[in-house]
Write a protein that binds this DNA or RNA. Structure first.
Lengths: 347, 347
DNA sequence: ATGAAAGCGCTAACAT
DNA sequence: ATGTTAGCGCTTTCAT
């Protein structure tokens, strides 16, 4: 009994103003209301006005589900990110959202919390309610990506390029950027660095490490120390990094660099006097930490625009699978300097 | 012609596997498929298995729009935030999202870009496709809020309490927190401070300034200097702040404090030796800037949980309009110290 | 230019 | 326990 009452209530609550009521109020057919509202077909100015009046009088708002069912699209896109706490992603999300809403799409946001399987599951789940999907720094394994590529849901990758996966991507050239960074360090006389990594599941981490490895051919000795690309994990990893007595630390991203900076300060190690530190991303904060961070500018805005334009294309039927690169450039600031003669030790 | 072809294509593209096809494949009725899938009503284990098989064989995924139309809900909630670049908001969004997805809701995200009118418009637009709405640090004026309260869309406010508005809210007690902060400063001998503000449209800014004004009664001289609660705007506002020769700067939030710290450093003013600085929010970064920031811990996780539980309640029919406060507490770190004897000047 | 009506794919009575 | 069927609210032919 209480059950049935609640049920009836819910039903009632959601029974809003329908197009039928507007039609009646305006003394026209539902077809005319629909046409008047969507500016499709032509409708007599008089009637159009009457419809407008009825709409405002009744406070009519079209039912999204009904419209979606009828036209075969909810006009939503989904964005999946690995981590909701990194400002970098949000700048990209922000930019994609601007593009999407200009074109009349809403954004469904989900996080995979760094778990590849969960990410794939989320992508699959989201499919029925979105027209398109953008995956930020996806960690889904290649086979999963291929599976997604086979579905009819337009999907674009941001900062992940995978051989043999038929998906458009917007990315930054991590390898080239890191090599530039290493070149800069070499020029300053650094011979031994440690790469303070991000998550091993991250494509960007693999690429950046690849860049470091290539720089080895240029005479740079490099050790990889594992962290997670967060302030805290990097803070904690610094002590391990120091064990190999580097003169510079190349951090996976700016957040990692901030963590490293913080730990080095606590240890009384001067940056850049005794140790150089670099970041990646160039988040707004980078120029305001002390010392101002030498980093790579990864253009979130451009990346977001690229992602949206790629998705737009797909949405309108074109099936390009291009990889578009945004230009990342070195930003030299104060956290790098000539290598200290003897490397420091905390022991 | 090209038009009609495209049209037909679109139609075809979206025509996925329907429940009807599954029913046929499994040799049962659509009702049985529906029941088997939703675990409602009882269905013979054999048939259930056959349905499962058919579903995987065909790769069936229910059409969200059709389901939404039928049950009267798309099971989406909307979150509107003023600014996509402040990590603080995203921690709250993250937490709300966890709660929502546990209960089977997806999250539609939108930004008002700080514009109150746009925010109201967005809220209204979102209504037809969401079951509920949460407004983060809403800047909608009171009348607009009242308008939203009258609609049948459950709505909760985070960090905004407005007299006479019938909406549940989850908030932090800004006034009390700021007064504590001022008490701390007074105890350190500070007599003259400047409040480096956030946007005047922000309720939180008004509250925090209110707190500062109350502290005046405790003998604290305070001047308000306008900024926007961002690193850059606060960086730029510091010079104006110094004109009134304060011994401490109370910044609207941590980002503002970081901007202030950065400018002070550039000016060669030592913090906390010559100038104390405080923030608000306690974002992860706060403990890692130099000097470690004295701030107010505003518990994003608790706030997010509160918001979701408030919305859940509303979603399930209850109509409470409670204001739930999350506890904000002072975090004393290294950016505050006893007042410098003479106030500094940059001239 | 306008209206009548047939779906869109699903759920939930209602029968059986 | 299972099937039949009537909607849900909108768009879009198809007639007129």
């Amino acid at each position: 009994m209480a059950e049935s009452v609640r049920q009836r209530k819910r039903q009632a609550a959601k029974a809003g103003v329908t197009i039928k009521m507007v039609a009646k109020e305006a003394g026209v057919s539902t077809a005319t209301v629909s046409r008047a509202l969507s500016h499709a077909g032509s409708v007599n100015p008089d009637l159009e006005e009457r419809v407008r009046l009825a709409v405002t009088a009744l406070g009519y708002q079209p039912n999204a589900a009904a419209r979606g069912l009828s036209i075969g699209s909810l006009r939503n896109i989904g964005i999946i990110m690995p981590d909701m706490t990194n400002p970098y992603f949000f700048h990209v999300v922000d930019q994609i959202t601007r593009g999407a809403s200009e074109d009349g799409y809403r954004v469904l946001l989900a996080s995979s919390y760094g778990d590849p399987d969960r990410e794939l599951a989320t992508a699959l789940e989201l499919r029925p309610q979105v027209d398109g999907l953008v995956l930020l720094s996806s960690r889904i394994e290649a086979s999963g990506l291929r599976q997604l590529a086979r579905t009819d849901t337009p999907t674009v990758l941001v900062n992940r390029v995978e051989q043999g996966v038929d998906l458009p991507v917007a990315a930054v050239d991590n390898v080239a950027a890191i090599m530039q960074l290493c070149g800069h360090l070499l020029a300053l006389g650094h011979k031994k660095i440690v790469y303070l990594s991000g998550s091993e599941l991250s494509w960007q981490d693999q690429e950046r490490w690849k860049g470091v490895l290539l720089a080895r051919h240029m005479g740079l000795e490099a050790v990889r120390v594992q962290a997670e690309g967060t302030i805290e994990s990097s803070y904690a990893a610094v002590d391990r990094a120091l064990e190999s007595k580097p003169t510079a630390i190349v951090a996976f991203n700016d957040l990692a660099a901030v963590g490293a900076l913080s730990r080095l300060r606590d240890l009384g190690i001067d940056v850049p006097g005794q140790m150089s530190v670099t970041g990646f991303d160039d988040i707004p904060l980078a120029r305001h930490v002390q010392p101002h961070l030498t980093t790579v500018h990864s253009p979130t805005q451009q990346l977001g625009d690229l992602a949206w334009s790629l998705l737009s294309q797909r949405l309108s039927g074109s099936a390009t699978t291009e990889v578009r690169y945004a230009v990342a450039e070195l930003v030299l600031r104060d956290s790098t300097a000539p290598a200290a003669i003897p490397s420091v030790s905390i022991q």
